[in-house]
Nucleic acid binder design. Structure first.
Lengths: 173, 173
DNA sequence: CACGGATGATTCACGTGTCAATCAACTGGT
DNA sequence: ACCAGTTGATTGACACGTGAATCATCCGTG
C-alpha cells in the first residue's frame, strides 16, 4: 500500500451521504419553489420579502431594516425590489426621516398575491417535505441541523446590536 | 372558533424544522463552495465538469453525453463550458462522427487545477459536513434522504434508456 | 460650521440558472 | 435523392446572487 497516511478525508460512504443529501434536498426545494411559482407566480425571494413586509407595522419598512431582517445583502434586496416593483408588488418612496434612505411599501396587489400564496405554499412544504418523514425523523433532522450549527459556531454570533426587541415569528421561505 | 377545518398545513414546529434545515445546509454548502473557490478558484460547477471529464476515457466527452452524465440542461452546460474555455480549463472542438456535435476536452491546465482541488475539497466536505455528526446521525441522514426519495418517487424513474452499463463512481460536488 | 468618516441605497460587472428559439446536421421513409 | 421530423448545440432574454464602486446624506468632533 503506497498510502502515505491519508489525511482528513471522508470515506466513500460519507461522501455518498453528502451527495445524496445535497441532491435530494435540492429537489425538494425545487419542487416547493416550483409549486409556489405555479400557484402564485412568486419566487421564494418574493415570498420572503412579502412576508416580512406584511408583518411590518403599516406594511412598510425601511429598506435597510428589511435587508437586515431577512438577512440579505443590500444590493441583493435592491435588485429584487426593483423587479418586484416592476411587477407592482411593492413600491418605494423616499424616506422622510433620512433623505438617503427609502421606504418600501406593500401594494394592494402585493398584499393580495401574498395572501393568496401562503396556504398553498405551506401545504406544499407539508406535503413535499414534512410528510416524507416519521415524527422521529423530523426530530432527527432538527438535531442534525442543531449539530451543524454547533459545529460551525453559528449560534453565538446571533445578538444583533440592541435592536429587535421581540422578533415576531420570522418565517423563511 | 372560526376555524373552518385546517387543511394539510404544517405545525409551527414542522415549519421551523424546514426552515432550520434549509438555512443550515445552505450555509454548509456555501462554506464548502467558498473553500473550494479560495483553494482552487473553481466553482462547484467547474468541479463537477472537471470531475466528469477527468474520469472520461481520454479526458474527452461528447458535449451531450457530458450533460446527460452530470444531469445538466444542455444550455447550462453550453454556457458553463464557454466560461471554462475562456479560463483555459477545457477546450471544444468539432466532432468527427457527427458534424453537429462537439467534443469537450480537458486541457493540461484544467487537469492540473482539478488535481490540485480534489483533496482540499474532500477535506472541506469532511470537516464542514461529516465532522458535524456522530456516525449514528450520518446514518440518520442517509435514511432521511432515502425517505424523501421514496416519498417523491425518485427511485423508480432512474432507468435511463439502455445506456450506461455501469456508472463509475459519479461524484457530485 | 466645516470636515472626515460612517451609513443608506443603487449601480456595475460578472457568474450562474431556466426556458424558448434558432440553426445546422442527421435520420428514416418514400 | 428528398422532405419531414429529430437531435446536438448555441444563443438570447431574463431572474437571481455576489462584491466592488459610487454617491449622497448623515453625524461627531474640533
Amino acid at each position: 500500500m503506497g498510502a502515505a497516511g491519508r489525511r482528513n478525508l471522508p470515506t466513500s460512504e460519507e461522501l455518498a451521504t453528502w451527495r445524496a443529501h445535497v441532491e435530494t434536498f435540492d429537489i425538494v426545494r425545487a419542487r416547493i419553489e416550483s409549486r409556489l411559482h405555479q400557484d402564485s407566480k412568486l419566487s421564494s425571494g418574493d415570498y420572503r420579502v412579502l412576508l416580512a413586509l406584511s408583518e411590518a407595522d403599516g406594511s412598510t419598512v425601511r429598506s435597510s431594516e428589511l435587508a437586515a431582517h431577512i438577512e440579505w445583502e443590500r444590493s441583493r434586496l435592491s435588485g429584487h425590489l426593483g423587479r418586484m416593483e416592476k411587477r407592482g408588488l411593492v413600491r418605494r418612496e423616499p424616506c422622510a426621516e433620512d433623505a438617503r434612505g427609502s421606504r418600501v411599501l406593500l401594494t394592494a396587489e402585493g398584499a393580495r398575491a401574498f395572501r393568496a400564496s401562503t396556504v398553498p405554499h405551506l401545504q406544499a412544504i407539508k406535503e413535499i417535505f414534512v410528510d416524507a418523514f416519521t415524527p422521529r425523523q423530523l426530530a432527527d433532522l432538527d438535531e442534525t441541523a442543531a449539530a451543524v450549527r454547533r459545529h460551525l459556531d453559528l449560534d453565538s454570533p446571533r445578538p444583533r446590536s440592541s435592536d429587535v426587541p421581540n422578533s415576531p415569528t420570522g418565517e423563511t421561505s
